[in-house]
Simulated assay, not measured.
Amino acid sequence: MTDAQIDADYNVRNTVSPELFDATVEEYRRRSREVVDGLDGFADLRYDPDSTERLDVWGTGGDLRPVFVAIHGGYWRALSRHHTAFMSRMLDAAGIATVAVDYGLAPHTPLEEIVRQVRAAVAWVYHYGAEHGLDPSRIVVGGSSAGGHLTAATMVSGWQADFGLPDDVVRAAMPISGLFDIRPLVNSFANEWLGLDDARADALSPMLQTDRVGPRAVIAVAEHDGVGFLSQSRMFHDAWARHSESELLVVPDRNHYDVFLDLAEPESALSRALLGLFAGLAHT
């Protein structure tokens, strides 16, 4: 595949107009701000002693609640947790808490460090979540675009022991419109801020780490997503399903950006799938 074809397949900004992109990102922020107004929770918590990154907890109260760890997209270089809480009201109504996570952004933060920080956020939920109304035995991770890649980085094996976690700390997962084999990005426009070489891209590709049993997953992607994101979602589902329970969900009439907003609507296919992941969990 030529570099020009890789750019065409992975530059999802070209799949929507600039006006629609700007409006959707603003809706992330507006709806996130609106839905957390009045929700019980804890804001601006530092989760990682080795960085200054923060997270917010929304929708707590009463017994320990299962928790959705929400990871924002932005091609690893944009957006924040403040764009990523719009599902918290929907989940609160179902008795589920939301943890919206920040991570350092490229190019200032290397992708290895971004992955480590997201895993550290999961570790914080496990080790300290009970102090904030969260059930450490019922953690589901999900995210969109770059957040889909980072979600997959928490699904694979081999990292948990470094954080004092059980292998099954992530009980279920929903990567949405993610990238799982980032080797093509070495020859793409995205490497302007990622700065990857082939060896690092190999190590950072969850697609190459699917040889062990992992959490139940819904691999979601928008019908009108970028070519690369559609093909990688299908391939990751096929790879994950070889050892673990996996469902591929292609969301009709959605693009790379607005599909994530479906988690604000309780009757959407995406929300029903996420709630189904929680329904399958039991206390451990």
Rank of each mutant, 00 (worst) to 15 (best):
A106V: 04
W240E: 10
A173P: 03
G74M: 14
D253P: 02
P252T: 14
A239C: 04
A190Q: 14
L185H: 00
A120V: 03
G59Y: 12
S32R: 02
L270T: 14
P66A: 08
G164K: 10
R183M: 10
A239G: 10
D135R: 00
F236K: 05
F68G: 08
S32A: 07
V36E: 10
V141A: 02
A120T: 12
A203W: 15
L277C: 13
G164L: 11
D48E: 07
E112H: 06
D50K: 07
E192K: 07
D92W: 09
E53L: 04
I182G: 00
R30D: 12
D48N: 12
E245Y: 02
G195R: 14
R30H: 01
V140C: 03
A241V: 00
L230E: 11
F68L: 15
S177Y: 11
R119Q: 12
L204Y: 02
N11I: 12
A203R: 14
D168K: 03
P215T: 11
L281E: 04
R116C: 02
G62P: 06
F42M: 12
H83F: 12
A152Y: 05
V67T: 09
E247V: 15
L150I: 07
A146H: 01
W193P: 00
A85P: 03
T24A: 12
A146M: 00
T210S: 08
I176E: 04
L39K: 10
D225G: 11
L194C: 06
E34Q: 12
G226T: 03
D167V: 10
R46G: 11
V170P: 01
W240N: 13
H83Y: 13
E192G: 04
E245R: 07
S137E: 06
S177M: 06
G95F: 02
D198E: 11
P266K: 11
L39G: 05
T52L: 14
A201I: 13
R89V: 04
D162K: 02
A241E: 13
E223C: 03
A239F: 07
A152T: 00
A269R: 15
R46T: 14
Q209N: 12
S144C: 13
A282K: 09
Y75D: 08
D7C: 01
G41E: 05
W58N: 14
L196C: 09
V35T: 10
D63L: 08
S145F: 08
D253T: 10
Y103D: 09
L274W: 09
G178C: 07
G195V: 00
S80P: 01
G61D: 05
F163Y: 11
A43N: 10
H283P: 15
V156Q: 08
N187P: 00
L204D: 11
D168F: 03
T98D: 04
S188A: 11
V16K: 08
D102L: 06
M155N: 03
S188V: 00
S246Y: 05
V115R: 01
A23S: 13
F163P: 05
R77K: 14
I96F: 08
A106G: 05
V115Y: 02
H72I: 08
H256P: 09
G61S: 06
D238N: 12
R212V: 08
A43Y: 03
A93T: 09
G74Y: 14
S145R: 13
E27Q: 13
A203F: 08
